[in-house]
Design a protein around this nucleic acid. Sequence first.
DNA 1: TAGATTGTTAATCGATTAACAATC
DNA 2: TAGATTGTTAATCGATTAACAATC
Lengths: 232, 232
Amino acid sequence: MPDSNYTPQTVVKRLPVYLRVLDNLLRREVEVISSKELSSETGFTAEQIRKDLAYFGAFGTRGTGYQTSYLREKILKIIGLDQKTPIIIIGAGHLGIALTRYNVTNNPYVRVIAVFDNDPEVVGQKIMHIEILGVSEMERIIREYNIKVAVLAVPADKAQQVVDELTGYGIRAVLNFAPTKINVPAGIQVHNADLAIELQSLIYYSSSEEERMNRLKKSKEKKGEKEIETGQ
Amino acid sequence: MPDSNYTPQTVVKRLPVYLRVLDNLLRREVEVISSKELSSETGFTAEQIRKDLAYFGAFGTRGTGYQTSYLREKILKIIGLDQKTPIIIIGAGHLGIALTRYNVTNNPYVRVIAVFDNDPEVVGQKIMHIEILGVSEMERIIREYNIKVAVLAVPADKAQQVVDELTGYGIRAVLNFAPTKINVPAGIQVHNADLAIELQSLIYYSSSEEERMNRLKKSKEKKGEKEIETGQ
DNA sequence: TAGATTGTTAATCGATTAACAATC
DNA sequence: TAGATTGTTAATCGATTAACAATC
């Protein structure tokens, strides 16, 4: 029963793109924007943009378009970015450090409260002004700051165990960079940001259609042979 | 005209997941696996897995399942990972460095040929054993190693310009970490791995359905008020 | 042969695109 | 009023799920 207020995930994923474009437009002091112009800025169709926004309300003016700053405010509210979201990052390896720096410098909508690691060598150090804490401090920090969102940058073999802990402490959404499937109770969101998988699926497209078809043909032929060999 | 050999992108994105699971199974010396078991390892349905594989051929044995090592070989061929793919990484900032290390240590299917940066301070340094070269060397390296895949980790305002160069030198697929839309000629693939956007869409789900509905309601009410205020 | 599981076709579901009335 | 553009409903497209015959 997808209740009447259900919004497809595919729509939700586009909202931050709209937000970014609106931020850029405001910087350029563009005060009004049509769905057609938003289309050329985002790469999504104008129809899709209008339909996406219609899930949440009617924010435009017929004949004119959308008031940039007003639409931005609305989208901020819809996503829940009207206040800075406190987040934590688990894992202070190279990726964890890069993600911390990235979010501190480039993501104005979140506040990185702390980074956690189990290596005593790095605990106590700082990434920019953010402290690296031992994992034993996780529960305290999560509860103290009422943190709901965690970024996971730990090795694959530690990921499930860490997420079990996190959900136990009240975390509701995890951005998982560990290359492994994670099981969570209903209602908890895990989004996978699997860099190796992204790259590998891209490699599929890096050969021409012709090369792919040749590989495929060879694949099918070999299967044929194999069946004959073993089929007797 | 989606020709008969066209494979949906959504299927291609699942192939590396199958590959990873098969790698793990082989390590555990599991020799045969059913679509049902693959389902529990991947989180995709058994029907979907069988249908995905059917795009490329018939690799299983009815009544038995799939031979792990054979299916792995086939998927390697399909994606084009049967030989190590040479890639380059553009941008030796924190993210570029993290991506380089990550792929060198964790992605056995690619070989990072070089990292490029325009900062003379970092050019000449090494990340693990990989050299950081000036961007003026890009063309030479791309042509010398016949590189088709690039990972882009440069600031947003440099991204389009760099990609224009890359495609000019023969790059056919770009994994873009820069938070901006990139325009490319037909036939060139750009996949966006936008970390801030991933995180922001996750934040949407970090509040409960109730909280979201409240925000939404408020949003719609305010819009209502606004219409009344300005509608006279 | 009986049991299991694939490969494939048909049915369903969901998302995108097209069309257009509403309205600024 | 004429032109423009939204918001919304209907049509289309594509992907997932269900069903089942083929076959090991």
